[in-house]
Design a protein around this nucleic acid. Structure first.
Lengths: 249, 249
DNA sequence: CCACATCATATTGTCCGACAATCCGACAGG
DNA sequence: CCTGTCGGATTGTCGGACAATATGATGTGG
């Protein structure tokens, strides 16, 4: 009959108060926060309480500090921070390789299309660079995987859409371990990825959204085939150690 | 020439240590954490330091407490926690209505298709229920918006893909304010949304992925038209107060 | 044996005060 | 302009304290 009457500890209220002012842009990016002592004075709580509140905002990525710096500054959550949180959440939700792949399949063609429509010259150059770097890579499985990630990242950048840029990273990161295995075990993986990247780059360069989307669709579908050929069960949970996945003999 | 030599404060290392054990599943969901005093003893740091570490994990959604409870438990980040972090990040990145819309345009058809392929009977019922509730709603702009959100949520649920379920919520949440304005100002908005929902439900019920995807595509495109008719500039930043957007006369 | 009220204990939230390390800004000297 | 010095300010960490209350053990009655 009655709602539980809400009680929130002071550290929570302090953190919400600061968060609200940041989101309302009353505290703008790059601005230094008052010192802990000053905050404690203003909120009329102890410095320890303020510190707990600050830790929450810090891990949300809303506060950060300059390298080696001491004071806290208002920052916008970096891609890494957001991506880390998201992929960590997905691991806890036991997302499987096939789930992430499906999401990629849904979202990447749209990103490619947007990139083709709006890419700037410099974004295009970055994209070309990423593709060339992957193509030039030999051996070095781990680095090759990073190259693949960079390619998708560059594409997100070219789309000039912060939503895409933020979503891209965590999804790719979750697939990184499986990608490494694919590149290791599937002989033609590198060449297929490389040629797909070239087609996509060409379409983006030509501002041909439909073609970019179609090639990306094919590219992502190839990944799925890669999982199968490499013997990675589609129901493998992301975030587990893939060292244990048996090689197909 | 030289890498900055890394130093990490104790609260950070403590929080990382606990996070790692959670992600490695050595601490499983639902399990109670040791008490703060005990953690302080084991890590050989002060309780204040432990508390700062716990606040970080708490705001990541990896730790939570039972309602009215005192001890902390390992939890998986709720959809709200993840969504909150993501939409907050997008606000800070000054994502615009059109950016979010574009992402929706990219991802929702895929979700609809997946839902059509895999929906369970009970998920289908939830979806139907959400559609019926929206259709039955009159007036009550705010609630109508929530109904729309519920519909997309139910669809994500039906897709049975945790990635989709987590991505759905924050995107919709960001559009909620604009949606409210659309429903207020565009007379035919309700009926168009309602009929789109019905078509999607029908396609999902029939397990017709192609049709579900196509209708969803149309549905999302309609939103864009809605923004224009309602006089909401596509370049409006999400998260700003929309009370100021002038009505078209 | 189970359900329930009772109570001592453990635990959290918050405070206070302290101190070392170090970052910051100013200042002087080459 | 670069470098070295210096004092003050700020953070990271510590120890201890106490009120409020959740937790678990205990005892009691059915």
């Amino acid at each position: 009959m009655f709602e539980p009457l809400g009680y929130a500890p002071a550290y929570w209220r302090v953190s919400e108060a600061i968060r609200a002012r940041i989101l309302r842009r009353e505290l703008v990016e790059g601005q230094a926060l008052p010192t802990e002592t000053e905050l404690a004075r203003q909120f009329e709580v102890n410095r320890s309480t303020v510190r707990e509140a600050l830790r929450k905002l810090e891990s949300n990525g809303l506060l950060g500090r300059r390298r080696g710096g001491k004071r806290l500054f208002v920052t916008r959550p970096t891609r890494e921070a957001v991506g880390g949180g998201l992929s960590q959440a997905l691991e806890m939700h036991r997302a499987r390789v096939v789930d992430v792949w499906e999401a990629l399949q849904a979202v990447q063609p749209g990103i490619a299309a947007a990139a083709a429509e709006r890419r700037s010259e410099s974004a295009l150059r970055h994209l070309e660079l990423a593709a060339r770097r992957f193509a030039a890579r030999e051996g070095e499985r781990e680095l090759a995987v990073l190259d693949v990630t960079s390619f998708f990242d560059a594409l997100g950048e070219a789309s000039d859409n912060p939503v895409f840029m933020l979503l891209n990273e965590p999804l790719l990161r979750l697939l990184n371990p499986s990608l490494a295995i694919i590149i290791d075990r599937v002989p033609q993986a590198r060449s297929r990825i490389g040629s797909a990247q070239q087609q996509i780059v060409a379409a983006v360069a030509a501002r041909d959204a439909a073609s970019a989307s179609a090639w990306m669709s094919r590219h992502v579908r190839d990944f799925r085939r890669g999982f199968e050929v490499a013997g990675i069960p589609l129901s493998t949970e992301v975030g587990v150690d893939l060292g244990a996945v048996p090689a197909v003999s």
